[in-house]
Protein backbone atom coordinates (compact mmCIF):
# COMPACT_ATOMS: atom_id res chain seq x y z
CA UNK A 1 0.00 0.00 0.00
CA UNK A 2 1.11 3.54 -0.76
CA UNK A 3 0.04 6.32 1.61
CA UNK A 4 -0.07 9.79 0.07
CA UNK A 5 1.41 11.79 2.95
CA UNK A 6 0.00 15.37 2.93
CA UNK A 7 3.49 16.85 3.47
CA UNK A 8 5.85 14.30 1.93
CA UNK A 9 3.88 12.82 -0.95
CA UNK A 10 3.46 9.10 -1.71
CA UNK A 11 5.24 6.85 0.85
CA UNK A 12 5.37 3.06 1.26
CA UNK A 13 3.04 1.89 4.06
CA UNK A 14 5.96 -0.15 5.44
CA UNK A 15 7.43 3.14 6.75
CA UNK A 16 4.42 3.53 9.05
CA UNK A 17 3.11 1.77 12.15
CA UNK A 18 -0.60 1.25 12.57
CA UNK A 19 -2.54 2.22 15.67
CA UNK A 20 -6.17 1.60 14.70
CA UNK A 21 -9.58 3.26 14.42
CA UNK A 22 -9.29 7.06 14.27
CA UNK A 23 -11.98 7.41 16.93
CA UNK A 24 -9.02 7.02 19.31
CA UNK A 25 -8.57 10.79 18.78
CA UNK A 26 -11.79 11.39 20.71
CA UNK A 27 -10.58 10.65 24.21
CA UNK A 28 -13.53 10.79 26.64
CA UNK A 29 -13.72 13.44 29.36
CA UNK A 30 -12.06 11.92 32.45
CA UNK A 31 -14.11 14.21 34.70
CA UNK A 32 -17.47 13.09 33.33
CA UNK A 33 -19.68 11.12 35.74
CA UNK A 34 -19.75 8.14 33.34
CA UNK A 35 -16.01 8.33 32.62
CA UNK A 36 -15.41 4.65 33.50
CA UNK A 37 -17.92 3.49 30.89
CA UNK A 38 -16.63 6.04 28.40
CA UNK A 39 -13.04 4.85 28.75
CA UNK A 40 -14.06 1.19 28.57
CA UNK A 41 -15.76 1.78 25.23
CA UNK A 42 -12.97 4.06 24.01
CA UNK A 43 -10.22 1.59 24.83
CA UNK A 44 -11.78 -1.77 24.03
CA UNK A 45 -14.76 -1.60 21.66
CA UNK A 46 -14.44 -1.10 17.89
CA UNK A 47 -16.84 -0.78 14.94
CA UNK A 48 -14.44 -2.84 12.78
CA UNK A 49 -16.36 -2.15 9.54
CA UNK A 50 -16.00 -3.94 6.21
CA UNK A 51 -15.62 -0.97 3.86
CA UNK A 52 -14.65 2.64 4.55
CA UNK A 53 -12.47 2.94 7.68
CA UNK A 54 -10.72 6.00 9.14
CA UNK A 55 -7.55 4.97 10.90
CA UNK A 56 -4.42 6.31 12.57
CA UNK A 57 -1.03 5.65 10.99
CA UNK A 58 2.27 6.93 12.45
CA UNK A 59 5.13 7.79 10.11
CA UNK A 60 7.76 6.17 12.31
CA UNK A 61 10.43 5.79 9.60
CA UNK A 62 9.76 9.28 8.32
CA UNK A 63 8.68 12.61 9.74
CA UNK A 64 6.97 11.11 12.84
CA UNK A 65 3.63 12.61 11.85
CA UNK A 66 0.32 11.01 12.84
CA UNK A 67 -2.04 10.67 9.88
CA UNK A 68 -5.72 9.87 9.54
CA UNK A 69 -6.02 7.57 6.53
CA UNK A 70 -9.41 6.73 4.97
CA UNK A 71 -9.06 3.25 3.54
CA UNK A 72 -11.44 0.61 2.26
CA UNK A 73 -10.91 -2.57 4.32
CA UNK A 74 -12.35 -4.72 1.51
CA UNK A 75 -10.07 -3.44 -1.29
CA UNK A 76 -7.20 -1.66 0.57
CA UNK A 77 -7.93 1.42 -1.59
CA UNK A 78 -6.91 4.67 0.14
CA UNK A 79 -9.27 7.55 -0.58
CA UNK A 80 -8.08 10.32 1.75
CA UNK A 81 -5.08 11.17 3.93
CA UNK A 82 -4.98 14.04 6.43
CA UNK A 83 -2.69 15.12 9.25
CA UNK A 84 -4.23 13.84 12.47
CA UNK A 85 -3.59 17.27 13.93
CA UNK A 86 -5.92 18.88 11.38
CA UNK A 87 -8.62 16.32 12.14
CA UNK A 88 -8.24 16.87 15.90
CA UNK A 89 -8.46 20.66 15.52
CA UNK A 90 -11.58 20.28 13.41
CA UNK A 91 -13.10 18.12 16.16
CA UNK A 92 -12.60 21.01 18.58
CA UNK A 93 -9.45 19.80 20.29
CA UNK A 94 -6.83 22.46 21.03
CA UNK A 95 -3.98 20.38 19.49
Amino acid sequence: MIIDHPLLGPRDAAEFTYLGDATLINRPDPAAPDAADGFYEYLYLRDNPAGEHNELWYHEQGDRAWLVVSRNTLTHEITKVELARDVALRLGRDR
Binding site: G20, D21, E41, Y44, L45, R46, D47, N48, P49, A50, T73
Partner: peptide
Protein backbone atom coordinates in the same frame (compact mmCIF):
# COMPACT_ATOMS: atom_id res chain seq x y z
CA UNK B 1 -17.48 -11.70 14.06
CA UNK B 2 -17.85 -7.90 14.12
CA UNK B 3 -19.86 -7.82 10.88
CA UNK B 4 -22.31 -10.46 12.05
CA UNK B 5 -22.69 -9.20 15.62
CA UNK B 6 -23.25 -5.64 14.33
CA UNK B 7 -26.52 -6.98 12.88
CA UNK B 8 -27.57 -7.63 16.50
CA UNK B 9 -26.39 -4.15 17.49
CA UNK B 10 -23.40 -5.47 19.45
CA UNK B 11 -19.93 -3.89 19.25
CA UNK B 12 -17.07 -6.24 20.05
CA UNK B 13 -13.57 -5.90 21.49
CA UNK B 14 -12.29 -7.26 18.16
CA UNK B 15 -10.51 -6.02 15.01
CA UNK B 16 -10.26 -8.07 11.80
Amino acid sequence: SSRVMAKAGIRLPIES
